[in-house]
């Protein structure tokens, strides 16, 4: 009887497995980014633009009335809503003109925003969500309804199947007696 694993594969397998492990370990040198970001919430008090209307600077006043000024990088992300609640998502490099317009709109409405920033550069400028907790409840409700419905459907399916099988077993056993 020929052995199921040939010497060729058998002998080289161990070596290749070691090589594989080494490869995975060495290639997994993902540089963990140090996060020293801070978050600030408040209302917009100033929006600066350059000659072409592109957003350059933003001033935000927090609840104690202290004003902080931010500059932008091309990666700065925006997630801002208009009065109707439609969300606009973009980055600074995509549409700096629209970003300036949206922020001015927020200044006029005194709509609060949240800025995450490091070294005076804003990384993201988003709508402050605190005032709309009730609308989020819909999502919480949806999660519970959908997942529990799925769970009960599966449990009912299992219960039915088990009952049918048990009936079948009883029938077959009855044939023997």
């Amino acid at each position: 009887m020929q052995s199921r694993i040939s010497p060729l594969v058998g002998r080289t397998a161990l070596a290749t497995m070691f090589a594989l492990a080494a490869l995975v370990i060495f290639s997994n040198q993902s540089a963990a980014q140090a996060k020293d970001e801070e978050v600030l919430s408040g209302v917009v008090v100033g929006v600066d633009t350059d000659d072409n209307g592109n957003l350059t600077r933003l001033a935000v006043s927090d609840s104690s009335g202290q004003v902080t000024t931010f500059k932008f990088s091309t990666n700065t992300q925006f997630g801002l809503e208009n009065q109707a609640g439609d969300r606009w998502v973009s980055s600074h490099s995509d549409d700096p003109v629209e970003a300036a317009r949206r922020l001015r709109d927020h200044r006029e409405r005194f709509a609060p925003i949240t800025v995450s920033h490091a070294n005076g550069i804003a990384h993201s400028v988003v709508e402050r969500e605190e005032g709309k907790l009730e609308t989020n409840l819909g999502y919480l409700f949806a999660v519970f309804v959908i997942t529990w419905a799925l769970f009960f459907a599966y449990t009912l399916y299992m219960g039915r199947k088990q009952r049918v099988l048990q009936y079948e077993i009883a029938r077959l056993k009855g044939m023997f007696d």
Binding site: R4, A13, T16, M17, L20, S27
Partner: peptide
């Protein structure tokens, strides 16, 4: 480089495991 390393790891892993499991 990282992607090619990943491809090599994938190839080696599945060649060896499949050869063993084929029986």
């Amino acid at each position: 480089a990282q992607w090619l390393q990943l491809a090599v790891a994938f190839d080696v892993a599945f060649l060896v495991v499949s050869a063993f499991i084929f029986q």
